[in-house]
Every structure is written in structure tokens, then in C-alpha cells.
Design a protein around this nucleic acid. Structure first.
Length: 278
DNA sequence: ACGAGGTCCTGCGAGC
DNA sequence: TGCTCGCAGGACCTCG
């Protein structure tokens, strides 16, 4: 799914298209994506409402409405939110979950092949509770290596799993966890409470570098991800470990390995560069 | 509290 | 060719 860089790209592209627009003709094609909101209330709230702002929190797209409620979309694995300034093709209409007209032939469409994505409609107080449960933003101006370490270190779980724990740190998923750990030369299976201060400083730097570089490249398109205007990202061409099992390590040329032993997710790494106490 | 594993979905590629 | 199986950018839940 879209991780932080993909959602940031979507939001940056959509903001100028959406801000100030009035919504009409909302259509919901599947109700199983709704969380704590009925189809009726969602459609009623969207109809003739105005978009006040579009932003990102962790991996979630936040559309603030003129009535100060927030439409929050979690794309999860295969969701994408795209503005079309023309009619949709049959293929684009396929897998549409939510569609809203923005005016003169322009449509905002949330589509999601696997439909693991979710849609929330939150009051200001519900939003406050929602965002409070998510960890700090890794790219926030005041975020520091010390704060980063303080968030992750209390856990004895594998550092890779902890890095992806949204309650400890916002926005890092499987692709960027793999990339950041490789670049910091840290074994993904190491317990988080056993990393040194120096290792946390390294990991802090590589997490932020990888996320920033991925945003600059408009994100990583493995299969389904598209930017807010329907384009693919380009960071997939820059990945050093994710999806490169068996290929040579960019640093030492040793063949990269993949394990599923950490949280059941694919972890690709260089056993030589990311060895036990490398 | 922790880890393991299932669940929600559909599509795709590998292997037989 | 046509099947079954496992796996896929995530997060939430239950069980032991």
C-alpha cells in the first residue's frame, strides 16, 4: 500500500485540485470499506459540502470538509485516490469504491482492488482521538534522533516490526523499513531494546533520507499505486533491497536474502552488511 | 504484555 | 491450458 511518501505525493497533487471545491453526486459502490459511518450519513454529508483542506497524517489522506468533519481515507494495500478531469474508462471505473463530482466534468475517485482500504467520517473530537493514537511524524520539523530512539527502544520486538508500528512511528511500512534498515546496516531481526544510541542515530537518518527521497520520486509503484493525478511513482527504480531477493547487494555484491520470519512480512536484507553486530 | 496467526479482499504468477 | 497455492505497499483482532 501507499506508505508515507505515496500518501504525501497524493495529497500534494490533490490539494490544488480539491481545496475550495464543492462536492456533488457522491456514489458509494461498496459499503464494506466504511468504518463507524453509515452509507446514508456519508452520502448526506458529502452532498453539497465543500472541501476546506487536504492533508496527510501517517499513511492516511485527510479531507477536511467545510462543516469541519473530516473524511479520512486509508488506502492500505491497493487503494488510490485520483482526480480525473475527464470521463473514466471502463478499467478506471472498475474497482471504484467512492466517486464524487467536483464540478465541470471533474471526478474524485477512490478505487481499491482488494478493498482492504477504509473510509472514516470523523467529527473534530473523533479526529482528535484518531490522530492521538498514531505515533509522531518522522519528517516533522522538531523530530529528533533522541525522540526517535525513545519511541522505539522500549520494545523487545524486532526493530523492523517496531519501525512499522504506527503507534510508535507514523508512516513507515514494509518497503521503507527494509530500505532504511539496509542503509543503516542494521539486522532487521535485532530486538529494538538492544540497538545502541549510535545505531538509533543512523537509523533515524536513513529513515528520514529514504522517505524524503521517495517523496521526491513521487513514491514507489510496485503494482497498484498511482499519484493523485494517476501517474506511477519512480522510486521502485532506486530501491536497494525491497523486491531484489537474489540480486547482488549494492554495497558488497553478496546475494540478498529474504525471510518471512519477522511479523510474516517479506524482509529482504544483506546478511553480510546487516550481520549480527555489523 | 508478547508473539503467533487469522481476518478482511482480489489478482497474479509459479508450479504442477 | 487450467487448476491450486502462496503471496502482495496494512491494520486489527483473538488466542495462548
Amino acid at each position: 500500500m501507499p506508505e508515507l511518501p505515496e500518501v504525501e505525493t497524493i495529497v500534494r497533487e490533490l490539494r490544488p485540485h480539491l481545496t475550495g471545491q464543492t462536492l456533488s453526486h457522491p456514489r458509494l459502490y461498496h459499503t464494506d470499506v466504511l468504518r463507524r459511518v453509515s452509507r446514508e450519513r456519508l452520502l448526506r454529508t458529502l452532498r453539497n459540502n465543500r472541501i476546506a483542506d487536504v492533508s496527510r497524517r501517517a499513511k492516511h489522506i485527510v479531507i477536511e470538509l467545510g462543516t469541519s468533519e473530516r473524511l479520512v481515507i486509508q488506502p492500505r494495500m491497493t487503494g488510490s485516490l485520483v482526480v480525473y478531469e475527464r470521463r473514466l474508462s471502463a478499467d478506471e471505473r472498475r474497482y471504484a469504491v467512492l466517486q464524487v463530482r467536483l464540478g465541470t466534468g471533474t471526478q474524485l475517485v477512490f478505487r481499491d482492488v482488494r478493498r482492504l482500504g477504509t473510509i472514516w467520517l470523523l467529527s473534530p473530537s473523533a479526529w482528535e482521538r484518531y490522530t492521538r493514537r498514531i505515533g509522531p511524524e518522522p519528517l516533522a520539523a522538531g523530530f529528533s534522533a533522541a525522540r526517535f530512539a525513545a519511541q522505539l527502544r522500549p520494545s523487545r520486538q524486532a526493530i523492523k516490526k517496531v519501525l512499522m508500528d504506527q503507534q510508535r512511528l507514523a508512516g513507515v511500512g514494509n518497503i521503507y523499513a527494509n530500505e532504511a534498515l539496509f542503509r543503516a546496516r542494521i539486522d532487521p531481526s535485532r530486538p529494538a531494546d538492544r540497538l545502541s544510541d549510535a545505531e538509533y542515530r543512523r537509523l533515524f537518518r536513513t529513515v528520514r533520507a529514504v522517505l524524503r527521497e521517495a517523496i521526491a520520486a513521487d513514491g514507489t509503484t510496485v503494482r497498484d499505486y498511482r499519484t493523485g493525478t494517476g501517474k506511477t511513482g519512480s522510486y521502485q527504480f532506486v530501491l536497494r533491497v525491497y523486491g531484489r531477493e537474489g540480486q547482488p547487494c549494492t554495497r558488497c555484491r553478496t546475494a540478498l536474502l529474504t525471510t518471512h520470519s519477522i511479523d510474516g512480512r517479506a524482509t529482504t536484507f544483506c546478511w553480510r552488511c546487516q550481520g549480527k553486530d555489523a
